[in-house]
Amino acid sequence: MAVLDEPEATADAAGLTTGAVARRLGVSPTTLRSWDRRYGLGPAVRAEGRHRRWSPADIAMVEDMCRLTSAGAPPAEAARVARLRHHPTTPTTDPASPRASAPPAPPRADGDVDGEAEDAADPGATDPRPEPGPRPPARRGGAGGGLPLGGDVRQECRGLARAAVRLDAPELEQRLLDAVDRHGLVVAWEEVMVPTLRAVGRKWESSGDRYVEVEHLLSWHISSTLRGVPFLFPRRDPVTGAAPVVLACTPGEQHSLPLEVLTAALAERGLPTRTLGAAVPTEALLACVRRTGPAAVVLWAQTRSTASLPLARHVAGLEWGAAGARRRPTVLPAGPGWDRRASAGFPRCSGLREAVDTLGRLCEDGARPPARGH
């Protein structure tokens, strides 16, 4: 057996061919070549004659790509995460960037060097993005790009605001990821993302509809960053036996971004969640609570008109489980729509960190058997 393994061991030292890497990962060579062309997930160095030789670092990158896509991540998002993990200085591409208008790169001349021809169409690679390349330096505007940030914000807010006003999607993406990486999710949200979002909102209100596109682009990239946090940054081991947290906007409430950051922050702690998003109908919310038996239910309301005390009380009154050991969820009203009167009798949290701590305790308590007689 050692004699049979010797050629592959020698190839490992010099770098594996695309065919060998494909066999190792259980994918087709065509898929690997497509990932290389479309996402830049290819060998960093090529041997003479343009033959591809995959180093251990190159293989680790596509292994991450396989793992993330198997977990349900979209191919373009999985490729971005894999590149950032293994080549953090490589610029990313985005459909809104100038390079996205260029035609896709033609097939390379070495398409058949591994003995397998390119397929006419690859069902595993449908994203038409070009492979990544250097971007021109971002243009620098005034402090905050003209947005009313004020003088007591982090410097990252000003860079983020300038990128938003320029509609520079790749710069937005990188700055948001840098903020989470440098400060952690909670600080990045409370001290970088939220002040910038508020500044855009103030500019929008004072300028008619001129800055709608800025607010929408910034919100979209913040949402994308939050959804990528579990893939990009290590999470704690799941809390064994913990009941989930249900997160939902009240009926008629469309502002779901705060629920997304809370979902990501809970995922960092290994806590299970069921996030329903914006404008959840009452019956759908009640059905979810009955079917999942959550430790807590977070009800988000941005305005007083969407905060419903009867709904909160109704959810808090739901019961499940065997007689003598029935459970009820703890309802956590969240958002500026809940004033003290509207949330009377319910726990209140002053910010993201406190909400995560409170929900963490509830989940851990819910993982323990209920005390006899409770």
Rank of each mutant, 00 (worst) to 15 (best):
E173S: 06
E173L: 05
Q174E: 13
R175M: 05
R175H: 11
R175C: 06
L176T: 13
D178T: 12
D178S: 07
D181W: 01
R182V: 11
H183A: 09
H183F: 05
G184V: 12
V186E: 12
E191A: 14
M193V: 15
M193T: 14
P195E: 04
P195Q: 04
P195L: 04
L197P: 02
R202M: 11
R202L: 09
R202D: 15
K203F: 09
K203W: 13
S206W: 00
S206I: 00
S206T: 10
G208H: 09
G208K: 10
G208Q: 10
G208L: 01
D209P: 00
R210D: 11
Y211V: 13
V212Y: 10
E213P: 00
E213A: 08
L217M: 06
L217V: 00
L218K: 02
W220K: 06
W220V: 03
H221Y: 11
S224Y: 00
S224L: 02
T225P: 01
T225E: 02
T225K: 02
T225M: 07
L226V: 05
G228P: 00
G228I: 00
G228D: 06
V229Y: 01
V229K: 01
F233E: 06
P234K: 12
P234R: 15
R235E: 07
R235P: 01
R236T: 06
R236H: 12
D237I: 01
P238G: 05
V239Q: 10
V239E: 12
T240V: 15
G241Q: 08
A242Y: 08
A243C: 09
A243N: 09
P244D: 07
V246S: 07
L247C: 15
L247S: 02
L247V: 14
L247I: 15
C249T: 08
T250G: 01
T250E: 04
G252T: 14
G252A: 07
E253Y: 03
Q254S: 14
Q254Y: 05
L257T: 10
L257N: 02
P258H: 07
E260P: 02
L262E: 04
T263F: 00
A264P: 08
A265C: 13
L266T: 13
L266V: 14
A267P: 08
A267V: 13
A267I: 12
E268V: 12
E268D: 10
R269A: 10
R269T: 13
L271I: 15
L271G: 12
P272H: 03
P272M: 03
R274A: 15
T275L: 11
L276Y: 03
A278P: 01
A279C: 14
A279E: 01
V280M: 07
V280A: 05
P281V: 14
P281S: 08
P281L: 11
T282G: 04
E283A: 15
E283V: 15
E283H: 14
E283P: 04
A284I: 03
A284P: 00
A284Q: 13
A284K: 03
A284Y: 00
L285K: 09
